[in-house]
Design a protein around this nucleic acid. Sequence first.
DNA 1: AATATGAATTTAAACGTTTAAATTAAAAAT
DNA 2: ATTTTTAATTTAAACGTTTAAATTCATATT
Lengths: 348, 348
Amino acid sequence: MTLKEIASMAGVSVATVSYVLNNTAQVSEETRKRVEKIIKETGYRSNILAKSLRKNESFLIGVIVEDITVWHTAYIIDGINEIAEARGYNTILNNLRLLSKIESQFEHISNYQEDIDKAVDVMIGMQVDGIIYVGMHDRKINHVLHDIKKPVVYCYCYTDGEGSSVRYSNEKTVYQMTQMLINNGHKEFGVINGLKESEPAALRFKGFQRALKEAGIELKPENVACGNWKYREGKEAAAKLLGKKDFPTAIVAMNDDMAVGVYDAAKELGLKIPDDISVTGFDNADIVHYMTPRVTTVERPLQEMGYRSMELLLESIHGTSVGDVNITLPCALIGGESVKKLVTTEEL
Amino acid sequence: MTLKEIASMAGVSVATVSYVLNNTAQVSEETRKRVEKIIKETGYRSNILAKSLRKNESFLIGVIVEDITVWHTAYIIDGINEIAEARGYNTILNNLRLLSKIESQFEHISNYQEDIDKAVDVMIGMQVDGIIYVGMHDRKINHVLHDIKKPVVYCYCYTDGEGSSVRYSNEKTVYQMTQMLINNGHKEFGVINGLKESEPAALRFKGFQRALKEAGIELKPENVACGNWKYREGKEAAAKLLGKKDFPTAIVAMNDDMAVGVYDAAKELGLKIPDDISVTGFDNADIVHYMTPRVTTVERPLQEMGYRSMELLLESIHGTSVGDVNITLPCALIGGESVKKLVTTEEL
DNA sequence: AATATGAATTTAAACGTTTAAATTAAAAAT
DNA sequence: ATTTTTAATTTAAACGTTTAAATTCATATT
């Protein structure tokens, strides 16, 4: 069913039908009714491809994700899609499958950039109006999408290159979390950081240090550990920290997975949370539901990051934005029962 | 950069360039070289929209998912995308966001069908060559996608309507799991089933019963419980089952979430797994990594389901399939340490 | 009565491809 | 030398829209 057929059925020209469809010119009440009736009856659906070709606007957004099976990715996509749908855009998704590639090739992702280029190629071929790149942020990535003349927004990941970006705050969030612990009277801290090379690990640690410094609290070097974000290393690190005679009163784990490790290490040492040791996490991962007592953690604004990325991109597409914008969204502290109130130093 | 421009740069007609590009007619070695050089130099990319319009084939596949934030969905999408990419197809994704709607509207998903229709509308408008519908299978859904004249494959979910489908085996898998328990000498069973109204719960229970029946084992009605797939109800049910004097030797939980509930209930009663009570789960969810001892569970062939769905759809699109096909894939039993060997009845 | 106005509609070109059919040029067969 | 065959290339229509410009026709203005 095409415009032409509708037109001939209604006894008008294709132009008139198009005008009715898009409400883009004056059409007499009578013909409008007639055409609309036929459109409804036939269940006619406009060919978006033809429309896009003619209008040189595809209403298509390309979304490249580094790995869709990393759980937070789905929430970001969710956010992106919600805005896209509301604004009449469609998304085409390309999953780089980075994680399975890293696993199978032993950290040797040779064709990584090649894959991105290929994805971009296809998307440009599809005439996308813009691209959102959802990366994992354990590495610094520079200029992953180069010389495409379309608007680009980087979401979640870090980039030094041109293009707007949407991230969440690592430094400030851990700063606040640490402040909260300090306000609860904690003075002796242990920390289990994420991967050394990782940017967010560095930032989170920075926030942690800033809070301590401001409060004049000293951090013993032997109370600083580094994990690989995973349960096992978190547990091992915690076992060391808690195995000493005068272990800290609070352990800041830089993600929930390692926080579970702290829980288990504490349990094995016969320590009760939060009475003997306070613990905080980061991510508000699924595992939190199973932890008793519920861990105090951080929720990242994942869906919101999707919203903002898409909105930013649309602004860029419609030319209403002024250059590249870099947004850093705040996280929410999720209170649990894993932190003991030692003294109240809060005023008011 | 268009065909026309390339053509004029190479001093040939657009047709020739098209022939070079698609290798679809004889072109002299000389002109081919010349054209190819210019294509490479200019970085020309064919406009897929125009191509699709002309060829009446979009190389686009519509993927409708009921909720992308349900973790297994990502793995299915992953599988779908992998095949799509390999075969030169693109996917456009529509996320119905069913879960958040159910949560916010109190089980009253009024515009559910409407949303599907809208998604289908857009996809047909985009001239997709076919549609894959990835549903959750807690309900029976009939004819969700009606009178579209395109190939459709239902993935994961149940449907009575036309269209091919790809699922995994619930009945047989639990049957095998139960057999394994029986082979390990278990005779007294408890079971924590999923939601009563749910199709997979019914099927899993059926498999469970079949194994017992074949082995001549009787199931006490008081040892049958129903949860809502969630931790809390699993734990409550387990507490009841294990609180009795002569509780079973094995509890079959119909998913991992509830199995964790069993673990915690057992722990609170001072029962050791697997010494005092054997437990099995289903899903091989993330939580399994944190369970000690590791639970014996089931891995669904999620990615494989994505592969098969896409392959089936492509066969349908290319007319090489014969009518609707319904595929049920087997699951893998993931051995853990949560099952005690009471007696060995296995022969050989 | 002639002209101007304006609303409703149509015409036709354009978007970037593909491809059947036509044309041209060269080589082969008579 | 003419005709036939074959290879290489071009022409032009088609896909389904949008939209500027042109046309038609009724009504209002002079």
